[in-house]
Design a protein around this nucleic acid. Structure first.
Length: 705
RNA sequence: GCCGGGGUGGCGGAACUGGUCAGACGCGCCCGACUUAAAAUCGGGUGGCCCUCGGGCCGUGCGGGUUCAAGUCCCGCCCCCGGCACCA
């Protein structure tokens, strides 16, 4: 029997015991209340960081507490194993992403095990395993059968030098990360999932999630962005009819149909068909459309760029007055929202106002603007008529309040067949195609004769070859005949397999269901899912507040409608844990590049007045006085991370776990403190001393959790 | 730019739906006790400025406002963090 506390030995013994006794293996047991405690699965980046330790410790504490309360608790773990970092590692080291990923998983699994979490490791899964991702493919095909998955063109970042599609993250200041070449937009065919069909339900069901943080629900509601408005068709004038080659109308969506008589121009996106038609006739316009193609596709970039536009010389007719309105191509109009066209009402919309000012277009208003400030136009208007005002100079619709004006105008448009009231969502359909290697293959075959043909279910999974090495210039699958050469399942002739892979958010949209039945070879889910799901407590970072959580909610609703599961919301309670912070110390050599030093290497010297100096005693430059920059998120770039492995070796997992739990409430940021770690360590030591005393006195030690 | 969160002593952070006197609690610092000494521990003090030692004035990112009363409500702005649909 030991009499001094040696964390490594104690923890090894305990973990062995738990392993031998299968202490954390969860089995379906209708007699006991179940509890599904889930932490967001990690990306296998290589090493655990403190954020992981904190996340999983929170889940583990809850798991063990509820076990002791008599709940049948499931706490699983898995790996979000597809994604860009593996390709980046391949580019720099020449190692296949599969090898790199699996090695990382092995290392991180060992690190996680050393923390002694009450995880049922039998259920472990990695999203890059064909046994998992075949069901991504299977459900995709089911969605496609119902029109929930479809193909249309989408716009991506294009590196003209590497001839490759770039992720937004790979665009630095409008240039490709590897080539430095100015990024362009390019239109390519992609697969989409029709999440917008569920927009109304995704929004309404937020009300049924009282145990989600309010801010997450607000962010999701704003993201879905329901707005009530009106479709309005502006019939093409003769010039537009001849340019487009057919009669028709320019459709817009607006929430302010009441301002229809203040329209002074029409603005369309550069990718709009009318813009492309007009550009064919005008080299100047073609150049402008080309200019709009420069830069990345992110909303942040589109929203912050200077408003620019150019007239097409084409016109549409006002639906009531018949007055011609010129169509402009404008860089602030987004093709992806609404109809890719807006009616320009400078007096009632700040962006239209700025655009009109920049281009010299007229502003129809009661006040002549002189200063260029929108407030100058808006303020007297609101003062006179209130926020939404009263219609003036609007023909038969003059003198109406907002609601009444919209209703009357919409009714009149409907009579003319030129519009109707409609609900529009900001949410867009989910584009899942990625022109990348390390992801789940999209199970489609392109046949010259039959077109797009789904891979038959019996041929699933379409297995991703694991020996390719991406080099940064395009998708290696598209250069691998062994992968793309195939025969058409319908006509048997030679065909080409789709080489795009799925967005990794697909992988994480349902993994929590598969934990319930990881060994099920014949189906995506089975009756065990009905026992464990929905997840009772989900724990993860706030950075997933919108995309991951919204996609998982959508995917679950689709599975419900396919009668695969009976619930519509996957996560009953949500906890967003705070970040782990540490001090940031830097040294700025004269004329040199700023360097960061890890707080563990910094000594604090306090003067009698309480002021402090900070010093790195042993650096490669000798003793250095460093500057304290404050406290920030642990990050590689600021060199202020704490490696969990070293911490566990020195103090043991219990100290690491105790410190991360007691130093701050789970939702709040956690500030690293070596004194705090020492304190936690002392506490654990005292605890074990007491245990040893009991054992010495003849009591049996309790290792059952 | 848009959406969400935040900004309070040297530091982490309290303060219910506007209501005693902002700064609980903790850390740090200062003074004292114990000690040969130090650490540990215990007791006291600790927002800033001024002071005739009674107290006075200022103070919750900045500038306005509402109110008998504002950290809290309203208007405008600044800064930091997360997200903005191809990072995960």
């Amino acid at each position: 029997m030991r009499e001094t506390y040696e964390p490594a030995a104690v923890e090894r013994d305990a973990q062995d015991y738990w392993h031998r006794h299968r202490s954390f293996e969860a089995r379906e047991d209708p007699a006991r209340p179940k509890y599904y405690c889930l932490s967001m699965l990690p990306y296998p980046s290589g090493r655990l960081h403190m954020g992981h330790v904190r996340n999983y410790t929170i889940g583990d504490v809850l798991t063990r507490y509820l076990r002791m309360q008599g709940y049948n608790v499931l706490q699983p773990m898995g790996w979000d194993a597809f994604g860009l970092p593996a390709e980046n590692a391949a580019i720099s080291n020449g190692v296949p992403p599969a090898k790199w990923t699996r090695e990382n998983i092995a290392h991180m699994r060992a690190q996680l095990k050393s923390l002694g979490f009450a995880i049922d490791w039998r259920r472990e899964l990695a999203t890059c395993d064909p046994a998992y991702y075949r069901w991504n493919q299977w459900l995709f095909l089911r969605m496609r059968e119902r029109g929930l998955a479809y193909r249309k063109s989408g716009i991506v970042n294009w590196d003209p030098v590497d001839q490759t599609v770039l992720a937004n993250e790979q665009v630095i200041d409008g240039r490709g990360w590897r080539t430095g070449a100015p990024v362009e937009k390019r239109e390519i065919p992609m697969y989409y999932l029709a999440i917008t069909r569920y927009a109304g339900e995704l929004l309404a069901a937020l009300e049924e999630l009282p145990d989600w943080p309010e801010r997450v629900r607000v962010m999701q509601a704003n993201w879905i962005g329901r707005s009530e408005g009106c479709d309005i068709a502006f019939p093409y004038a003769a010039d537009t009819v001849s340019a487009v080659g057919a009669a028709g109308s320019l459709r817009v969506f607006t929430t302010r149909a009441d301002t229809l008589f203040g329209v002074t121009f029409m603005a369309i996106a550069a990718e709009h068909p009318v813009a492309l038609a007009a550009a064919r006739a005008s080299p100047k316009l073609a150049a402008f459309v080309e200019e709009c193609r420069r830069g990345s596709v992110t909303e942040a970039e589109l929203a912050t760029q200077e408003k620019k536009g150019m007239p097409t010389g084409l016109h549409v007719l006002h639906p009531f007055t018949g007055q011609p309105l010129e169509i402009w191509v404008a860089n602030y109009v987004v093709m992806a929202y609404g109809e890719g066209a807006v009616m320009g009402v400078p007096a009632h919309d700040e962006r239209d106002f700025e655009f009109a000012l920049a281009t010299g277009l007229p502003v129809v208003t009661v006040v002549r603007p002189t200063s260029g400030a929108y407030e100058e136009v808006r303020a007297p208007w609101i003062a006179a008529y209130g926020e939404h005002g009263v219609t003036v100079n609007s023909g038969e619709f003059s003198g109406l309040g907002f609601r009444q004006a919209v209703e009357s105008i919409a009714a009149a448009l409907e009579m003319k067949g030129l519009g109707a009231r409609r609900v529009q969502f900001r949410l867009r359909d989910w584009g899942i195609s990625r022109q990348r290697y390390w992801g789940c293959p999209i199970p489609i075959i392109h046949c010259a004769a039959c077109g797009e043909v789904p891979v038959p279910d019996v041929q699933l999974p379409v297995v991703l070859p694991e020996d390719l090495v991406p080099d940064g210039s395009g998708n290696p699958l598209a250069r691998s005949p062994a992968f793309y050469q195939c025969s058409c399942p319908q006509c048997g002739r030679a065909a080409r397999r789709e080489t795009d892979t799925m967005d990794t958010f697909v992988d994480s949209s349902w993994y929590f269901m598969r934990y319930a039945c990881p060994d099920q070879a014949g189906a995506m889910v089975d009756e065990r899912v009905a026992y464990w799901l929905p997840v009772d407590q989900y724990i993860g970072g706030i950075e997933h507040a919108i995309l991951h959580l919204l996609y998982a909610r959508f995917w679950t609703k689709v599975m419900r409608d396919l009668e695969l599961v009976k619930f519509g919301e996957p996560f009953t309670r949500l906890l967003t844990q705070g970040m782990v912070l540490n001090h940031i110390y830097s040294y700025q050599p004269p004329g040199g590049r700023k360097r960061y030093f890890n707080p563990a290497d910094v000594e604090t010297r306090r003067a009698s007045d309480g002021s402090a100096r900070y010093e790195v005693v042993t650096s490669d430059l000798g003793p250095l006085a460093v500057e304290h920059e404050g406290i920030g998120k642990m990050s590689k770039s600021e060199g202020n991370g704490v490696d969990p492995e070293g911490l566990i070796e020195r103090f043991g997992a219990d100290t690491a776990r105790l410190f991360t739990m007691y130093a701050s409430p789970p939702e709040q940021t956690l500030e690293w403190s070596d004194e705090g770690v020492q304190g936690a360590s002392r506490f654990i030591r005292r605890l074990w001393s007491a245990v040893y005393e009991q054992v010495a006195a003849g009591a049996a030690p309790a290792l059952e959790p």
